[in-house]
Amino acid sequence: MMLTDVTSCKELVARFRESVPADKGLLLDFGGCVVQALCSTDTLRDELAAYFKEFVTPSGSPDIVVSAHEADPPETGLDFSVKQPDSGKTKIKEEWADLEDGRVVRKRLTGMHFVFGQGENATIGPCLANSNQVINFINNRFIEWKLNLGGLLGHAAGVAHHGRGISLAGFSGAGKSTLALHLMSRGTTFISNDRVMVEQNGNGLTMFGVAKQPRINPGTALHNPDLCNIVEPDMRRDFLAMPPEELWRLEHKYDALIDECYGPGRFMLRHTMNALVILNWTRGGGSMKVSMVDPLERADLLAAFMKDTGLFYLPADPERAKGPDVGDYARMLGRADLIEISGGIDFEGASTVCLHYMATGELPENQL
Rank of each mutant, 00 (worst) to 15 (best):
D5C: 02
K10G: 14
A14Y: 07
E18W: 11
V20L: 13
P21S: 12
G25A: 11
L26T: 09
F30V: 02
G31S: 09
C39Y: 00
D42Q: 12
L44A: 13
D46H: 09
E47L: 12
K53L: 04
K53G: 00
E54H: 12
P58T: 02
S59P: 01
V66A: 02
E70D: 09
F80M: 10
V82E: 14
V82T: 13
K83A: 07
K83E: 03
K83Q: 07
K83Y: 01
K83G: 02
P85G: 13
D86P: 05
D86A: 11
K89V: 09
I92S: 10
A97F: 04
V104T: 10
R106M: 05
R106C: 10
K107L: 07
L109Q: 12
M112N: 06
H113R: 12
G119K: 06
A122L: 05
G125P: 08
G125W: 07
P126E: 11
S131P: 03
Q133P: 02
V134M: 13
F137P: 14
R141A: 04
L147H: 08
L147T: 07
G151Q: 13
G151A: 13
G154V: 11
G154W: 03
V159W: 03
V159Y: 05
H162M: 04
I166D: 00
S167Q: 11
F171N: 03
A174D: 06
T178E: 05
T178Y: 00
L179M: 10
R186P: 02
F190E: 07
I191Y: 09
I191P: 10
M197V: 15
M197L: 12
E199Y: 11
E199S: 15
N201Y: 06
G204E: 08
L205A: 09
G209D: 03
A211I: 08
Q213M: 15
N217R: 15
P218M: 00
G219F: 00
A221H: 03
P225E: 15
C228A: 14
N229I: 03
N229Q: 13
D238F: 00
A241T: 06
P244T: 03
E246M: 03
E246R: 03
E251W: 01
D255P: 06
A256M: 11
L257C: 09
D259S: 10
G263N: 08
F267I: 11
F267K: 14
T272H: 12
V277T: 06
R283F: 00
V290Y: 00
V293T: 08
A299T: 12
D300L: 06
D300I: 05
D300A: 11
M306I: 15
A316H: 05
G323R: 06
G327R: 15
G327P: 02
Y329H: 06
R335Q: 14
L338A: 06
L338M: 07
E340L: 10
I341F: 05
S351N: 04
S351L: 08
V353T: 01
Y357T: 01
A359Q: 12
P364V: 00
E365L: 01
